[in-house]
């Protein structure tokens, strides 16, 4: 095994081009587990820890440019206003120690359906900026997840940052686990109201082979809200609308039974979380809030 320590981004891209099988190492919260447990013996470890720009974020007019290695703890502490769903999800990640090391780049690189960041990114809207020596490209988050623990990265590419749409309305995130802290999601749900475009976006975690949106539920809700003029009136949403939205969100799942939960409970819980997160967000919207409820 060889330990590669690029001092800058260009060196990292060159190293990845030379050793496409090299495993990028950032917070280590996935990769080191696999090494400690003997599940993985890469020929090269590519330490991204010395590339300062990966740990920086910047708020633009429309989006937040979030470095792949900005740890979750900093997202919680520094970006709660701009990225409320992601900040809520970040606070639910594993433990304080992990939140001090892990970042969104790792979640995206691993692309586990249980990664906590995914539903929030799907709900907010995001693009993943990846780069290789051949050039850079931005992959829409909806096209990023291609299978169980598979993503749209090419072998020579590295994740540089994520461009996450700044919140213009309330956002929420919930996750069901069988412990009250330090638990991998049985399933999770992210939701963002986008009052500007009169849309609602969602993200479902750990209830399908990949993180995914509940497209039909989103469309239904956008229609129902528009039809009744609720975006403008900011009146309460009829219970039937929330109920239907929940049912459609549950219907968007294709969960499995595993050691962490049953398919049936996952589907049910996604429905409950969809209803609750929507009602929290709508309540915040009614009260004029722009950030998280």
């Amino acid at each position: 095994m060889e330990f590669l320590r690029p001092g800058c981004w260009e060196e990292a891209l060159a190293a990845k081009a030379e050793h496409p099988a090299a495993v990028p190492l950032a917070g280590g919260t996935d990769v080191m587990v696999e090494i400690n447990l003997g599940h993985r013996r890469p020929g090269h470890l590519l330490d991204l820890g010395r590339i300062g720009e990966l740990s920086e974020w910047e708020v633009g007019e429309r989006e937040v440019r979030l470095g792949a290695c900005v740890p979750y703890a900093r997202i919680v502490g520094e970006l709660g206003r701009e990225l409320p769903a992601l900040a809520l999800a970040s606070r639910a990640v594993a433990s304080p120690q992990i939140r001090n090391r892990g970042g969104v780049g790792g979640n995206l690189g691993t692309a586990s359906p249980a990664g906590d960041a995914h539903p929030a990114l799907l709900a907010a809207g995001a693009e993943v900026e990846v780069e290789s020596v051949r050039g850079a490209r931005r992959i829409p988050i909806d096209e990023f997840y291609t299978g169980v623990k598979r993503n749209a990265l090419r072998p020579d590419e590295l994740i540089k940052r994520v461009h996450v749409v700044r919140a213009t309305g309330p956002q929420q995130f919930s996750k069901v686990g069988t412990r009250n802290a330090m638990v991998i999601a049985v399933c999770s749900f992210g939701l963002a109201l986008h009052p500007g475009s009169r849309t609602v976006r969602t993200g479902i975690g750990s209830a399908a082979p990949t993180p995914r949106r509940a497209a039909e539920a989103e469309a239904f809700l956008a229609g129902a809200l528009a039809e009744a003029g609720l975006w403008e009136s900011r009146r309460a949403v009829p219970p039937s609308v929330a109920k239907r939205f929940a049912a459609l969100a549950a219907g968007a799942c294709s969960p499995i039974d595993d050691v962490r939960g049953t398919a049936g409970h996952r589907r049910h819980a996604v429905g409950v979380m969809a209803r609750r997160t929507f009602l929290w967000a709508w309540e915040a919207y009614r009260n004029g809030a722009e950030g998280a409820a």
């Binding site: 606070r91 639910a92 919930s174 069901v176 686990g177 009250n180 802290a181 638990v183 999770s188």
Partner: peptide, 13 residues
């Protein structure tokens, strides 16, 4: 609350 940091309830249920 049940769920803790995972933000599953704000008192409902």
């Amino acid at each position: 609350l049940p769920g803790g940091l995972a933000n599953t309830s704000h008192g409902e249920g």
